[in-house]
Design a protein around this nucleic acid. Structure first.
Lengths: 176, 176
DNA sequence: TATTGTTATACTCTATAACTATA
DNA sequence: TATAGTTATAGAGTATAACAATA
């Protein structure tokens, strides 16, 4: 998904220029204009638009680099939470990542088939299953988290260290 | 999609705690721990993770408010670009929004059936079609853009005006 | 030959209902 | 009765190939 061509130009002076209102029957003052340079100025004033574009840009880089580990972003998130929360349950993963339980089952099964994680009985709840990394999984995640750090550095290379911290702080204020 | 429960706690001191490495045959020192509070500290250090969570949070608000206009985020983006770029072509929309042409066709058809837009022949390219708002579409978009502004205010209520500007500026540095 | 718009189609992601076993 | 995990399935979003009309 190439989100190219997102420069700002004034083709229609965003917000002004009432334009002739086509569709009104029997009226067509101008012979239909053509757009030379697309003006995305208005959308660029919206936080949601900018946050989504930024997220997609970083995630695209992330996917390219993580392909070497055969991990999609969601797989990495799941394995990372298991790494830092040994014994975490599927339900806890779903709550933390906003995934619905039926959609997590397949991912967990695939990671288990790859011998990256194992299911252990939960110590206090017979319904639940605790998830743990295998040795293989631990090794993979050490490499994967190092690569994730490289992606971060790449993606934020136009930001100073302070700006990067500020960006993360402000993003958290939006979603927390 | 409720991305609830994303508080930080130290269940495993992120990055430390080598943990017993399950899966190694015939070795099981600890009786499988349980996780009380999920530690998302590591993921929260990643720009991609934070940007995606923030984008989803804002877009969720957006979808709730825009339901009154029967507009999804992508519909709003398309209509907004047509608003500020009368005569824009499908190809230009695809390039600006990162949508693939086959996936835009249905949206354009639906918006045309709702009498919000009309197709006009392109003044200089017989293959292309220029897109324009109807009077109905213009009225809808005046209300929709006002609502979008309210969503912005809502979503960024925990940010100062300066912080909001800073956030957008830093996000652009990520994806531009 | 290349591009615009389009159809058909496949694949992925996300969502809902319902079942089982445990609590 | 409520919850954890699971199955089946439906729907939305995203992807590629190929075609007709025009450049």
């Amino acid at each position: 998904m190439p989100p190219s061509q997102l420069r700002k130009t004034r083709a229609s002076a965003a917000g002004a220029a009432p334009s002739p209102a086509l569709g009104a029957p029997g009226r067509r003052p101008t012979p239909a204009p053509a757009v030379e340079q697309v003006d995305t100025g208005y959308l660029e004033t919206l936080i949601g638009y900018n946050a989504r574009r930024a997220a997609l840009a970083v995630i695209d880089r992330f996917m390219v680099r993580m392909a070497a580990f055969e991990l999609k972003p969601v797989d990495f998130s799941v394995l990372s939470l298991i790494t830092h929360n040994p014994g975490i349950t599927s339900r806890q993963l779903c709550n933390a990542l906003g995934i619905l339980p039926p959609n997590l089952v397949g991912m967990i099964n695939a990671l288990e088939r790859r011998k990256l994680i194992v299911r252990q009985p939960h110590p206090r709840d017979g319904r639940a299953v605790g998830l743990h990394l295998t040795g293989t999984g631990q090794k993979l995640m050490r490499d994967a988290e190092r690569t994730a750090l490289e992606v971060e550095t790449d993606a934020s290379q136009s930001l100073s260290a302070t700006e990067r911290q500020t960006l993360i702080r402000l993003l958290k204020k939006i979603y927390l």
